Every structure is written in C-alpha cells, then in structure tokens.
Computed example of a mutant assay.
Amino acid sequence: MYDPTRLAALVAVSEAGSITRAAERLGYTVPALSQQLAKLEREAGAALLVRHHRGARLTGAGELLLARARRVLDEMEQARHELSRLAGLCGGRLSVGTFTGAGIQLLPPALTAFRRAHPDIDLAVRGYEPPLGVAAVAAGEVDLALTHTYEPADPAPLPAALTSEPVLIEELVLVTSPGHALASASARLPLSELAGHPLISVAPAQPPRQGVESALVAAGATPSVVVETPNYALVCALVSSGLGIAVVPETVARTPAAPVGVRLLEPGNLRRTISVVHRTDEPHPAADTFRALLRGAFGRSAG
C-alpha cells in the first residue's frame, strides 16, 4: 500500500518541476523529500523521476502513478471533510486565550496542526496574562485558555463549569550570564548557594516571585532583588548582560532572546504547570480536538 505522504510528494514534484521547489512548498528539506521519493520508487518497483539540470520530470511509470495518486488524495480530502462535518468540525470558530510565553513556545505547532486538519474552522488567538485567561473562559470571551500555576503556591479555585487540564510541568532553573561561575558545573546547585548574588525578578505580587523568594529564605539565602521587570524575556536579557541572576521556568531558560547559562537547582521542587482551562457544561468539538493536540504534543514534563 502506498503512503499518502509520498504520493503527495510525487504530486508536488510534478507541479513544481523540481525537488527543491517541491520541498519548499511542502516544508521539507531537500534530502528529506528525496528520501520519501526514493521510498516511493521502491514501493512502486520502478523509477518515477528523472533528474536533470533544471529540475526533475516524471517517467512513464511516474505519470501513471501520478494520476492514481491525485485520485487517492482527492478521496482522502473528501473523507476528511465528511468526517469533520460528522464530528461538528466543519465551519465555525475556535478562540484560544494564551499568555505570552505559551503563545510563543506552545501554541504555534498545535495551531498549525489544527489548521491543517480543519481548515474550515476560523481561528482567533487573544492574549491574557494569568489568571485573566480563566476569567475570559468563564465569561465566554474565548473557548479555552492556556494559563499557569506555580509550586509552591496556594492553588486558586476555578469558577463553576470550568476545569483545568495540565499540558506541561516544568522546573524553575537558574539562569546566569554566559560563563558565570554558578552555571559552570552540571550538578544541581543548592538554593543556599544563591546567597549574596543580585537577583532579577518579576513583579512582587506575581506567584513565581513569591514562591522563589520564600524558597530562598527557607534555604538561608535571603534574596537581594536589584531589578524588577514585567516579563521573563526582559529578565533573561538583563541576566545575559551580567546585571544579576534569576530563577525562571525551564522552557524560558532554553529559548531566551539573549544567551544565558542554565543550571538545575536543588531541591527541584520549584515548578510551573501550564494548563488549558475550558468549559465542561457546553459541547465544543473543535475545543476538544485542539486540547487533544496539546496533550499529544506537550503532555509531559519539560525535564
């Protein structure tokens, strides 16, 4: 049985006239697409393409398979539309709330996958810094929202008819300027070792700061905050410049706008949980499908 992905690759090469242009259209690298085409030729037991200096053209066997490939792909697309209508996923709108970090790091691949599978559904993304996304779902402003909670911290109760589903659980880690002595070893760093170092942190009322400062005090390392900033991107930028150190979620530390040193902390009980909040009193097939995509892609621990 022929793989539909490889049949689509053959159609793309036929229409683009070259493997390079087809790879650009499909979002593949040229070697990856060439590998798919080579596998298709092995499945067919015949050469399907002839490469030349201006691109590639189909052989007689390739032209024969091309006609069948288009029929197969058309039938599969028709089946997808019919199944979407059956599941209530043909037409309509899905609105997603998110905070900035999740919008940059988690949403793009999930939204892209959802769009490919259900192109008839309009998508909208709105920004809500936690916990405002929870209130937005409760008020019906969005169908679901990504939010976060921190440990240690007192959990906030959810409004009636809402539920929260964890998507990603990650540790908070130390970030320093590149080459800083605190980030030079691979073993976990005891919190007590942060004593005396200038700390860059977020606003005082935010749960991550409260939890981090409480943990430092308990470890005998009373924090000395030298700069307060509104978001983690600026925290990492200031850390990178050598202004101080910081404790941030691991996904933030691994994807900073500026280079930083990273080290795990001991004990590893400072955590952030990113969750998707949604309603339970109203059926919403599109929201259910999108939550399944999030679970499949990110339902794990970052560590």
Rank of each mutant, 00 (worst) to 15 (best):
D3S: 12
R6E: 15
V11N: 07
S18N: 03
I19R: 01
Q36T: 00
A47N: 11
L48G: 06
R51Q: 09
H53A: 12
A56K: 00
T59M: 07
T59K: 02
E63M: 08
A69H: 12
E75C: 03
M76K: 04
H81G: 04
S84H: 09
A87G: 11
A87Q: 13
L94Q: 12
G101M: 02
P108H: 05
A110H: 07
T112N: 12
T112G: 13
A113D: 13
F114G: 11
R115E: 14
P119C: 11
D122H: 09
A139V: 00
A139M: 04
L146N: 03
T147I: 02
A153M: 07
D154Y: 04
P157Q: 13
S164P: 04
E170L: 06
E170D: 14
L172A: 14
V173M: 15
L174F: 10
T176N: 15
S177L: 07
A181G: 06
L182Q: 05
S186Q: 05
P190T: 03
P190H: 07
A195W: 04
H197N: 08
H197Q: 15
S201I: 00
P204I: 00
A205G: 04
Q210E: 14
G220A: 10
S224N: 14
V226H: 11
V235C: 04
V235D: 06
A237M: 05
L243Q: 15
P249Q: 08
G261D: 13
V262N: 13
L265D: 13
R272S: 12
S275V: 01
H278Q: 09
H278C: 05
D281T: 00
H284C: 05
H284L: 03
A287K: 06
A287G: 07
R295D: 15
A297W: 03
S301Q: 09
A302C: 08
A302P: 08
